[in-house]
């Protein structure tokens, strides 16, 4: 599905080094399909051991809503589980804003149409203080222009050109790789381990 420009409000989760075990604990990885992981997103922060929602967790509060997740530094470290990206997408998030993303998580996010936006700590702090004043602060995400904006700020972000093209057009790596069949066969004729 092509990634289009949109405006929405955001949900702040201001912890650093949020690892993939927090995003989706291992005991919820037992499914054999990609669906339904959203209900266990941030499971152990979101629910107590009886399964009751924890009132102080942001996803359980009504005041913050939206498809943009704003987090602290270094998001998605740890396990390679793509279930972390599936859980965020299944819950409804389309964008995560952090200072930094772990490599495997970033790939997994991009392969699922979830846009990771890297920005400075001060930009994130500025956004969050705007949201402290107005929880409905609207954020515009413009992938084509590689910008995100709120109030009177417009901030540029970097993204790999190829992945940008894939997101904008709704292409996948698989489509591209499948077109390389002949080159792969030729490569194997010369290759020591093929």
């Amino acid at each position: 599905m092509p990634f289009e420009k949109f405006n929405d409000t955001a949900v702040p989760l201001m912890a650093s080094n949020i690892d993939t075990d927090q995003i989706i604990p291992a005991r919820f990885l037992k499914a054999t399909t990609r669906d339904g992981f959203g209900k266990n997103l941030f499971r152990d922060w979101r629910y107590d051991n009886q399964g009751n929602p924890k009132e102080d967790f942001v996803l359980n509060q009504n005041n913050y809503r939206g498809t943009i997740l704003v987090v602290g530094e270094n998001f998605g470290c740890g396990s390679s589980r793509e279930h972390a990206a599936w859980a965020l997408v299944d819950y409804g998030f389309k964008v995560v804003i952090s200072t930094f993303f772990a490599d495997i998580f970033k790939n997994n996010a991009l392969n699922n149409g979830l846009l990771p936006i890297v920005t400075s700590k001060s930009n994130i702090e500025e956004l969050v203080s705007e949201m402290d004043v107005d929880k409905d602060t609207s954020i515009e995400i413009n992938l084509e222009e590689q910008t995100w904006s709120f109030v009177d700020r417009t901030i540029e972000f970097e993204i790999n050109e190829f992945k940008k093209m894939c997101l904008l057009k709704g292409y996948s790596n698989m489509d591209y790789l499948a077109s390389k069949n002949e080159a792969i066969n030729n490569f194997e004729n010369e290759h020591i381990y093929a």
């Binding site: 990609r34 390679s80 589980r81 793509e82 279930h83 990206a85 495997i104 790939n107 997994n108 392969n111 699922n112 996948s172 790596n173 698989m174 790789l177 499948a178 390389k180 069949n181 792969i184």
Partner: peptide, 13 residues
């Protein structure tokens, strides 16, 4: 390490 979409890509190509 890779994600599951990439597992699928390696299996296929």
């Amino acid at each position: 390490g890779i994600g599951t979409s990439e597992v699928e890509q390696v299996l296929a190509t």
